[in-house]
Simulated scan of single mutants.
Amino acid sequence: MMVDPVKSAGKQLTYDGLVPASALQRFQGMLVETCADPEVVLNFLVDEQGLYVMQGQASVTAKVSCERCGEPLTVDVAAQFAYAPVTRKQTADNMPDAYEPIEPNEFGEINVHGVVEDELILAMPIVVKHDESDCKIDPNNMSWGEIDETPAEHDNPFAVLQDLKRK
């Protein structure tokens, strides 16, 4: 869905609805099964400094794979964001840190579905795993590779110095 953020901010439009999950291919690739359509609220406004702004929030419940046991796990993904379109008057250099600059296309529009998808991807937990009590793998019994129980006989690293001292 393409939106002109400058015109929308001038009219103080609010979009409240669902983004089709089928439009979020990269986000869906992170999941073990297709999620429901994310709920999205977008507010376009002109702030106190006269900057055009798009503020929004998106949320969805998704099923991902547990990093520990590999079983499906349900997570709630929620994102809040604020963008300001880059224009002739409104450059990325003079934009406050509260807003992420966004480049409109040649028609002055932005892809709202792309923005929502990016924000949901960024809101995903870095490491997703069950609580220890719910996970099928006990973290106390986890080991990687074989552990050799026989004591290793190491040469003394200073043996070379002993030979030099004798000479």
Rank of each mutant, 00 (worst) to 15 (best):
P96Y: 15
R68G: 07
V77K: 02
L45S: 13
C35F: 05
A58G: 11
R166I: 13
W144D: 14
C66S: 06
E39W: 06
K165N: 08
E71P: 01
D134W: 06
I110A: 03
E149M: 14
K136V: 01
F158S: 06
M1F: 09
A159L: 04
D155G: 12
Q49C: 02
E149I: 14
M95G: 02
P157W: 15
S8T: 04
A62Y: 12
L73H: 12
L31M: 13
W144P: 00
E132T: 11
G114K: 01
V3T: 10
L164G: 10
V116M: 04
V116Q: 05
V46W: 03
V127W: 02
S143L: 05
V53R: 02
D118Y: 06
E153D: 14
L122T: 07
E103A: 06
P104C: 14
A159I: 03
E48M: 00
H154P: 00
V41N: 01
K89F: 09
K136F: 00
E109M: 14
A58F: 08
K165W: 03
D93F: 02
D155I: 03
E39N: 13
V53Y: 02
D37I: 04
R166F: 01
T74H: 02
V32R: 10
P20G: 08
K129N: 14
F158A: 07
L164E: 10
E33F: 05
M124G: 07
T87H: 00
P139S: 14
M1W: 02
H113F: 15
Q12D: 11
N111G: 04
A36I: 08
P38A: 08
M142W: 13
P157D: 09
K11F: 13
A92Q: 00
P125C: 04
V75E: 14
D76V: 08
T61K: 13
G70H: 12
E67C: 04
A79W: 06
E103M: 11
D93S: 13
F158K: 06
A62P: 10
M95N: 00
A9F: 11
F158N: 04
S8N: 08
V160R: 11
D37M: 04
D118S: 14
D76W: 02
G17Y: 12
V40G: 07
P101A: 14
H130V: 10
T91K: 01
E119T: 09
V128K: 15
N156M: 06
T150R: 07
A82P: 00
H154G: 05
T74G: 03
L42N: 04
A36R: 08
K7I: 12
P38V: 03
Q90G: 01
N141Y: 01
C66F: 05
Y83I: 02
P104H: 14
E48T: 08
M2V: 14
P139R: 11
A78S: 14
D148W: 03
I110F: 01
I137F: 09
V3G: 05
S133L: 08
V19M: 13
Q49F: 09
C69M: 06
I126W: 09
